[in-house]
Every structure is written in C-alpha cells, then in structure tokens.
Design a protein around this nucleic acid. Structure first.
Lengths: 92, 92
DNA sequence: TGCATCGTTGCGCAACAATGCATTAATGTA
DNA sequence: TACATTAATGCATTGTTGCGCAACGATGCA
C-alpha cells in the first residue's frame, strides 16, 4: 500500500495500465528529475506491482497486477461518497 | 491511498471488517498511546473509509467501504506472486 | 458540583520519504 | 576506441509522518 501512496506512482500505474512504456517515455510526463522518477519506478518494481523487461539500453515497464484497476475503482467510489457527504453537510 | 499506507490503519480496517467497534475496544489491540490510535482512526475518518456514530461518551466506528476488502485480496495476490518470483530467483 | 471515563489536540522529537545534483554502469553506434 | 544514450546510485537537504506526553473538552453519574 505504501508503494501506491504517492500521486507520482499512481500516475505511473495509470499510464502503464494503457500499455508497456519505457522510462524514457515516462519522463516527459513528469517535471521531476529523472533520478527521482527512477526511484519511484523502483519502488513499484520492488513490491512486484510493475515488472521490467530490458531491451538493449532501454527498460520497458509493464503493470503486473490488473486488479489494481479495481483498487482505483474502489478509491474513486470512496472519494465520490465523501464528496457527496461533505456537500450535504455544507448545505445543511 | 495514503490512509491505507500504515500497518496500524490496515489492522484497524481489518478489525472493523468484522463489525462495529468503539475506540475503547480497539485500544487493547494496540500497544500504542491512545492519542496515537485516535489520530490513526481520524485519518481513516477524514477520507471517508470509516464512519463514526456517537453513543453517549463512546464513539462507534464502522467500515464505510466494503470494496476495501477486495483491495486486500489484490494486495495479497501481489504479495504471493512476488514471494513466488523471489524464491524462484533464489533457487536459480 | 465533583469525579471518572472516553476521546481529541498542541507540542516537540525522531524516523522516514522525496528531491536534485553529481557520478557511475551498461549498452549501442560511429 | 571514443562518445552518446538510458537508467541506477551516493549524498545532502528539505518536507512529512508517527509517536508519547500533557492538557483539554464532552458526557455520564453520584
């Protein structure tokens, strides 16, 4: 869960949910230093959420756990329910 | 996701998955100071994972999001797959 | 009112996580 | 071989989180 507790890593997972990507393709999507991005990806690899396939000098990343998309669904449900609850409170 | 990125809070969710509990029932399950536990519970309440019902001096907590149990399933799957991968590597 | 119980909040400290810079390792190409 | 590209790592700095202690607010009861 810690590995998913970061907006940057969630965005990486989201991007990989649409297909394999190499580090160099991810870099333009983030403003951060490439070393920082590398460490975020490493965090996801270390826990097995993402797998790596090297091809020459490039390393291609793949989402290893389709069920994570269900996790996102659950999360969005919680967010929506909480937003509804708050607007109801504000109205009252 | 940050709210679930803590062993303590995961244990709280697990306990609440078996039914409503008050703070005073949770306290014996943890060695920590009650203030710390209170903060962990507050973190879960703030994002809407857990809801609260006051009854006199006690506050009863309830898991608001059954889909979280599916998240646990997914997580266990990742953990098992990663463990298998590692033992395979170690063997080779 | 006085007192006990349940839970929250302010504060300071220690541990941990995220970041950029500089460097290094591995691979491909001229 | 020399050089460029891709990715990982060591280090220092900064920001965030977890924790216990002490104090506080709220409720119930004698």
């Amino acid at each position: 869960m810690k590995a998913l507790a970061s907006p940057v890593r969630l965005k990486i997972v989201d991007e990989l949910s649409r297909g394999e990507r190499c580090m160099c393709e991810l870099q333009p999507l983030f403003r951060m230093n490439k070393s920082t991005l590398s460490r975020h990806v490493a965090a996801l690899r270390n826990v097995g959420i993402v797998s790596e396939r090297r091809e020459g000098v490039r390393s291609y990343l793949k989402l290893q756990t389709p069920c994570i998309l269900k996790v996102f669904d659950c999360t969005m449900g919680v967010i929506r329910a909480e937003a509804a609850r708050r607007s109801k409170l504000a109205q009252a």
